[in-house]
Design a protein around this nucleic acid. Structure first.
Length: 608
RNA sequence: GCAGCUGUAGCUCAAUUGGAUAGAGCGUCUGACUACGGAUCAGAAGGUUUGGGGUUCGACUCCCUACAGCUGCACCA
C-alpha cells in the first residue's frame, strides 16, 4: 500500500457504491497489518450522526474489551495501518473512548455522484447486493368470493415494496398471490347460488353482471347463515363441496367463475397500488399435491397420528412439544381427512423450492399468524433435512393491525370491515379537495390524476413509513396532510425539482446542463451531497432488514436536505459553473427520490 | 392457565439490532424571502425511555421482577 497521499485524489480513483462496505474492508485490512486477531475484530461501520462525520466504526471498543487492551491505543494502531485507498476516501479521527469517525473528502462525494448519477449506473450498482438469488414473495393473499377489506391493505402494500426492494437489489423476484380459493365455504356458496338460480335466474344473472364479487359475497353470507341455522342445509352444502372436490362439471364451473370474478376485482385494486403478480397459485393449486406431502412426512418420521388427525410435534420447543400442558401440535391433515392451511402451505414450500428454485420465500402476513409460521418453518426444516433437500430461507414478515383513532381495529361506524375499495376511494377524494384548494388553476383531468397519485401514495406511504411489526393507527388528517413525513412532502419535492428544470428549459440528467460544473462549496450543497451518498447505505440496510420504513426515513431526510438547499441557494444563477453544479445536485436528488419512491410502489408527479 | 408481542415528548412514530448529548413530524410558541412553486425554510419549549433491580467501558435495546395493553393457544384461513 503506497502511492497516493490523501490529497492526491484523481478522477480515476475508484469510489465504490457502498462506501460503508469499503470502509469495513479497509479496516479489516488495517487490522491484519496492525497484528489484530482478525477473527475477533468486526469493524461495525455505520452511518454516523452528522456531528461525528459521515461514518463511524465502533468495533474497536468491542475488540479491545475482548482482548483486554486499551481501546484508544488499539484505535491508534489501527489508524496508523489504514490502507491508502481508504484514507483517500475519507479523513479519519479517533474520538471518545475509541470510536473512529470518517468524514468523506469532497472529492469522494463528487466522484460518487458522477459514478452513480444515472438510472443505469445506479441500478447496476444497487443490483450487486442480491445478484443471483431467487426470492418468492407471498403477499396480499385474499380469499375469493369476498371483497378485500382494510385488513388486506398492509400485506399488499408492504409485500409490493419488499418485492421491489429485493428486485432492485438484484434478486430474481417471483410475486405469488396465494389466494384462499378452496375450502368448506365453497360448498355453502354453491348451495346458495343454486337456490338463487332456481328462485329467479334472471335476477341472479343481472346481479352478477352488475357487481359480481359483491353478489358472490352476498351468496356466501346467505349460505353461511342458513347452514348455521339449519342442519339440513349444512348437509346439503357439504354434498355440494364433495361434488366440487370430485370434479362435477356444474359445481366446478361455478367455482371457476367465482375465482375469475374475484381475481378481476382484486386486480382493480392492485392496479391502483401498482401491483402485478407473476403467479396466482391459490390453495386449490396445491390440492392434488398434499397427499405426497403426508406420505413423505410420515415416512421420514416427522408427522404422526393424534386424535385421528395427522400432526407434527416439536418436542425441542416447549410450546409445540407433545409434553406441553396443553399440547399445540401442527395439524397437517384434519381428522376427517381433509387438508387445511398447514397442508397446502407445506406443499407450497416444496413447490417453491423445486419449481421456482427459490433461495428465499417471504410471507407477508399478519403477525398474529406467527405461531403458524413458526411451526410451518420448523416442520419444513426437519422435512427437508431428512429427505436431503437443501432448505431455502423462510421468513415471516409479520405486520401489525390497522387501528382506528380510538385504538380499536379500524371499522365502519356500523362495525363492518371497511372495504379496501372504499378506503382508497376516500383517500383520493380527500386528496382531491386538497388539490383543488392548492392547484385550482390546473385542468380538471390534471387535478384528478394528481389526486389519485397523492391519495393512494399517502395511504401507501403512511403504512410503509412505520415499522411494519407494530400496529398502526390510521389517521386521515395526518396521512394526506401537507407536512411532515408524508407522501405529499416527498411528492412536492419531486414536483418542485421538475419545475426548476422546466423553468430553465433543461432536462434532468442531461449532461449538457451539467457540463463545466464547479466543485461543491456551500454548506447546504455539501450537506445535500452527503445525504445523496447515503442512499447506498439506506438501500443496503433496507434490503438487509426488509423494513421499508428505513428507506422512507432516508427519502424524507433527503427531501429535507434538498428543501434546505433550495431555500438557501438559487439554482438559476448567471454563473454557468455554479448553475451546472446545482443542476447536477437537483438531477441527482430527483433520480434518488423517484427511484426510492418507485421502490415503495408510489407513482410520482412532475406537477402538483 | 400457558405463551408471544408491545410500553419512548401532550399526540403519531424513529433510534442503523449494545454506542457518543434518545431523534423527527403534528400540536404549541417565535421568526424568514412579493417566491427557480409557501404543500417551504430557520429556531424555541417539551423526556427519570411504565416502575424497580441486575449485567459492563457503555442499556430504549440484554437478564430478572412488578404493572398495563394487545395477541395466540386441536382440526378456520
Amino acid at each position: 500500500m503506497r502511492g497516493a497521499s490523501p490529497g492526491s485524489l484523481t478522477d480515476r480513483m475508484p469510489v465504490p457504491f457502498h462506501l460503508a462496505a469499503a470502509l469495513d474492508a479497509g479496516l479489516k485490512q488495517a487490522a491484519a497489518t496492525a497484528g489484530f486477531d482478525v477473527d475477533r475484530f468486526v469493524p461495525e461501520v455505520r452511518v454516523a450522526a452528522p456531528q461525528h462525520g459521515d461514518f463511524q466504526a465502533n468495533g474497536v471498543l468491542a475488540y479491545s474489551k475482548q482482548t483486554k487492551q486499551n481501546p484508544r491505543a488499539a484505535a491508534q494502531a489501527l489508524v496508523a495501518a489504514l490502507p491508502a485507498d481508504l484514507t483517500a476516501l475519507a479523513e479519519v479521527e479517533i474520538a471518545g473512548p475509541g470510536f473512529l469517525n470518517f468524514t468523506l473528502r469532497p472529492a469522494t462525494l463528487e466522484t460518487w455522484l458522477a459514478n452513480f448519477g444515472s438510472t443505469a449506473t445506479l441500478a447496476a450498482a444497487a443490483a450487486e447486493l442480491l445478484a443471483g438469488q431467487t426470492w418468492v414473495v407471498d403477499y396480499s393473499s385474499p380469499n375469493t368470493a369476498k371483497q378485500m377489506h382494510v385488513g388486506h391493505l398492509r400485506s399488499a402494500v408492504i409485500g409490493e415494496a419488499v418485492a421491489r426492494i429485493a428486485a432492485f437489489a438484484g434478486a430474481r423476484v417471483i410475486r405469488d398471490n396465494h389466494i384462499g380459493d378452496w375450502g368448506t365455504s365453497f360448498g355453502k356458496i354453491i348451495w346458495a347460488y343454486k337456490q338463487a338460480l332456481a328462485a329467479d335466474r334472471a335476477a341472479l344473472e343481472a346481479a352478477l353482471a352488475e357487481t359480481p364479487l359483491e353478489e358472490f359475497e352476498r351468496l356466501y353470507k346467505v349460505g353461511n347463515t342458513t347452514a348455521d341455522a339449519d342442519p339440513a342445509v349444512l348437509e346439503a352444502s357439504r354434498a355440494e363441496l364433495v361434488k366440487l372436490q370430485a370434479g362435477a362439471p356444474e359445481n366446478t364451473a361455478i367455482w371457476r367463475r367465482i375465482g375469475e370474478v374475484s381475481v378481476a376485482a382484486f386486480q382493480k385494486i392492485y392496479d391502483l397500488l401498482g401491483i402485478r403478480f407473476d403467479h396466482t397459485l391459490g390453495e386449490s393449486f396445491y390440492n392434488d399435491k398434499v397427499a405426497a406431502v403426508y406420505t413423505e412426512l410420515v415416512a421420514c418420521g416427522v408427522a404422526e397420528e393424534s386424535q385421528g388427525a395427522l400432526v407434527v410435534f416439536h418436542d425441542e420447543n416447549p410450546r409445540y412439544s407433545r409434553h406441553a400442558e396443553r399440547p399445540n401440535p401442527f395439524i397437517i391433515r384434519k381428522a376427517d381427512g381433509a387438508a387445511n392451511y398447514a397442508s397446502t402451505d407445506l406443499a407450497t414450500i416444496l413447490y417453491r423450492a423445486e419449481h421456482f428454485r427459490a433461495d428465499t420465500a417471504l410471507y407477508v402476513v399478519d403477525k398474529r399468524q406467527g405461531d403458524h409460521f413458526e411451526q410451518l418453518f420448523l416442520t419444513a426444516q426437519k422435512w427437508f433435512a431428512r429427505t436431503g433437500r437443501p432448505l431455502l430461507r423462510l421468513e415471516h414478515l409479520g405486520f401489525g393491525t390497522v387501528l382506528g383513532e380510538d385504538g380499536r381495529p379500524l371499522k365502519t361506524r356500523s362495525g363492518e370491515n371497511i372495504k379496501l375499495k372504499d378506503l382508497l376511494a376516500e383517500a383520493v377524494e380527500r386528496a382531491r379537495r386538497l388539490v383543488d384548494e392548492k392547484s385550482g388553476e390546473l385542468s380538471e383531468a390534471e387535478r384528478a390524476a394528481i389526486a389519485e397519485i397523492v391519495g393512494i401514495g399517502s395511504v401507501q406511504y403512511a403504512d410503509l413509513s412505520q415499522n411494519r411489526s407494530s400496529d398502526y393507527t390510521f389517521a386521515w388528517d395526518k396521512m394526506i396532510s401537507l407536512e411532515g413525513n408524508t407522501a405529499a412532502y416527498l411528492l412536492y419535492a419531486v414536483a418542485r425539482i421538475h419545475s426548476i428544470f422546466r423553468k430553465l428549459g433543461a432536462t434532468p440528467g442531461d449532461p449538457a446542463s451539467e457540463a463545466g460544473a464547479s466543485p461543491l462549496e456551500s454548506p447546504t450543497e455539501l450537506a445535500l451531497a452527503r445525504k445523496l451518498v447515503q442512499f447506498a447505505d439506506a438501500q443496503a440496510q433496507c434490503t438487509g432488514s426488509l423494513r421499508p420504513h428505513v428507506l422512507c426515513l432516508y427519502l424524507y431526510e433527503l427531501a429535507g436536505a434538498f428543501s434546505a438547499f433550495y431555500t438557501v441557494e438559487k439554482v438559476a444563477v448567471e454563473d454557468p459553473a455554479i448553475r451546472a453544479r446545482r443542476l447536477r445536485l437537483c438531477a441527482h436528488t430527483l433520480l434518488l427520490l423517484e427511484t426510492g419512491l418507485g421502490l415503495l410502489g408510489l407513482r410520482t408527479l412532475i406537477r402538483m
